[in-house]
């Protein structure tokens, strides 16, 4: 009897989740660590975050200043291009709308750049309108360096390589500048629902 009950619960969960799972993805319950290099350890008193490029005057925050910005708690599904998806991940951070508030720019593109040298590119409109955050807590705990702490980007509507770990700043640019993976085979935009993994997808 209990076996049958368990089976039914499992089936309902699968049905409910399939509409949340992009094509070609599978669900994980752990949190895999992906890294293209050594993990940078950035002391909070040396950490800064900057908005630069096509902006009259760059805006920068040290850790203390950044933590005074209004925060949001968001729960999102994340999708890695290596095919795992993780549902209902909880984050605390500052929305890009707040960070970019009042910024006037003609730029249509952005480049996220990180401690350690990683870069990834996005249209500016993918960072605004409640779609992106700079987050510093995962499940209520400070973000571990392996997962991008002190702070990382969260852009959950795109594959997770578009959410840079160890974020150091965002450059506003007039011309699109493909980043670390986008210059070597990975799709320039990376929409998981259209399965945009590689060049030409």
């Amino acid at each position: 009897m209990s076996f049958i009950s368990r089976g039914f619960r499992g089936k309902r969960r699968d049905t409910a989740s399939s509409s949340r799972l992009p094509p070609g993805q599978y669900i994980v319950t752990d949190y895999p660590v992906l890294s293209a290099g050594p993990t940078p350890r950035i002391p909070l008193n040396e950490w800064t975050f900057v908005i630069e490029g096509e902006i009259d005057k760059p805006r920068s925050w040290n850790w203390e200043e950044f933590r005074k910005l209004p925060t949001e708690q968001v729960t999102k599904d994340i999708h890695c291009v290596t095919k795992w998806s993780k549902f209902d991940t909880g984050w605390t951070g500052v929305s890009m709308d707040k960070i970019l508030e009042g910024v006037e720019t003609a730029a249509e593109y952005t480049v996220q750049f990180s401690y350690g040298g990683y870069t990834t590119n996005l249209p500016l409109e993918d960072l605004t309108g409640g779609k992106a955050w700079v987050v510093y807590e995962f499940d209520g705990q400070p973000l571990h360096p392996e997962h991008g702490g002190p702070a990382r980007m969260l852009v959950p509507h795109l594959y997770f390589w578009k959410s840079a770990k160890w974020i150091r700043g965002i450059r506003l640019v007039n011309e699109d500048e493909p980043g670390f993976w986008e210059t070597n085979g990975y799709h320039n935009y990376g929409d998981p629902w259209r399965e945009q993994r590689y060049w030409g997808d």
């Binding site: 895999p32 293209a36 290099g37 085979g185």
Partner: peptide, 17 residues
């Protein structure tokens, strides 16, 4: 580094990709 979207090879002396 292989736990990544691709394989990244770095110089053991200077860390450059």
């Amino acid at each position: 580094y292989m736990n990544a979207p691709g394989v990244v090879v770095r110089c053991p002396a200077c860390g450059q990709v």
